[in-house]
Amino acid sequence: MTTLTLVQGDITRQHADAIVNAANSSLLGGGGVDGAIHRRGGPAVLAECRALRASRYGKGLPTGRAVATTAGELDARWVIHTVGPVYSPTEDRSDLLASCYRESLRVADELGARTVAFPAISTGVYRWPVEDAARIAVEAVRSTPTAVEEVRFVLFDERAYEAFARQTG
């Protein structure tokens, strides 16, 4: 059975087998969590992302999919990159958001990861309302069969932490 834990803080400071990156489709870094993971992980993360772009993902990683690289200088073995959907008030993209969590757990299982740290995917510049994102994330993790022993949601601020606490409570 997978244990869900919540932490308020910086995901790049977590010790876990795998840290999930809320990546953009280019895999080449950006703002928010993505930029922070690339900066703290160092050049090895970017080098593997560039290799993925040059091989399997020439057009970028599709929304809702996940792929792993080294964690470089992070206190983890791997970074699992997943591309969340941009929130739309007129189109239901919740299955794509749930897919980010399911696909990340699938990749974690392939790697043999037992602890996985997730950010609140799509709640930053992609503007997904944090209450809804928390509901989707927790439902997706709870309903996905996995050998991962601990899923840790690492929330950047108190508002996100409280939203996830209401869903796990």
Rank of each mutant, 00 (worst) to 15 (best):
V141I: 10
A16K: 03
S99N: 08
G29P: 08
G31V: 07
V86S: 01
G169C: 02
S55R: 14
G35P: 15
E150V: 15
P62L: 00
H15R: 06
V33E: 01
A76I: 06
T2C: 15
R142F: 01
R56T: 10
A18K: 09
G60A: 01
D34T: 12
S88Q: 10
S122F: 08
A113K: 13
S104E: 09
S104Y: 09
T12R: 06
R152C: 08
E91S: 12
I19S: 03
A134D: 01
F156D: 11
E162Q: 15
A147C: 11
E91Y: 12
A66F: 11
N21Q: 14
R50Q: 13
R135N: 00
A71M: 02
D75H: 01
P145G: 10
G72H: 08
P129T: 03
R93P: 03
S143E: 13
N21P: 14
T12V: 11
T5Q: 03
T144S: 11
L6M: 00
G72D: 08
P85L: 10
A98Q: 02
R40T: 13
W78V: 07
A140Y: 05
R135L: 00
I11G: 10
V151C: 15
G32I: 10
D92M: 14
L111N: 13
L4F: 06
A133E: 00
E162C: 09
V107I: 15
V125K: 09
N24G: 05
A22V: 06
T5A: 03
T82G: 10
D95S: 13
K59W: 00
I37A: 10
D109L: 12
D92G: 14
E149Q: 15
F164C: 00
G64R: 05
L97Y: 08
L74Q: 02
K59E: 03
G32D: 09
L61K: 06
V154L: 05
